[in-house]
């Protein structure tokens, strides 16, 4: 392989690093029930022949969904998505085990600026983080 080294671009910043996230599921309804319960939400679902999707209710800002169907395989390895758990993540975290998930890290202080996080594994086996400022 030859070629020349890429030219250095001007350092640019991105508006949001994330545009959308998807949480894979095998047992779709179980997964939807879990997130509905921990966040106290009612996710809108959409089903077609192959896929089932449920959307986190977001007005402005980065949204995401639960997806079940071909190629959508849960797992605890890989990227870690931080879900916004509001001002204080405790009420959400308290629901995790009741809803069938497993807490692997309790609420943990990061820094005054960054706030707190916690890590859980959802009933489908995905590892996710919760984040809050307090």
């Amino acid at each position: 392989m030859g070629g020349t080294a890429p030219k250095h671009k001007k350092k640019e910043s991105m508006k949001d690093a994330v545009s959308w996230f998807e949480i894979p599921a095998l047992n779709f309804q179980q997964s939807v029930n879990f997130y509905n319960q921990i966040f106290g939400i009612d996710m809108e679902t959409k089903l077609d022949d192959n896929y089932a999707m449920a959307f986190f209710p977001v007005k402005n800002g980065v949204g995401g969904s639960i997806v079940a169907g071909p190629g959508s395989t849960p797992g605890e390895a890989g990227p870690l998505v931080y879900l916004n758990a509001g001002k204080d993540l405790n009420p959400v975290l308290n629901q995790v085990e009741l809803a069938g998930g497993r807490i692997v890290m309790p609420k943990t202080f990061i820094s005054d600026d960054a706030g707190y996080f916690a890590i859980f594994i959802d009933p489908e086996g995905n590892k996710l983080a919760l984040h809050s400022s307090k």
Partner: peptide, 19 residues
């Protein structure tokens, strides 16, 4: 092993904290 650190905020003045 499932516990980890958060890199959140570590890119600024806040130092990464080993958790």
């Amino acid at each position: 092993r499932q516990k980890t650190v958060s890199s959140m905020g570590s890119n600024g003045s806040v130092k990464k904290k080993n958790l």
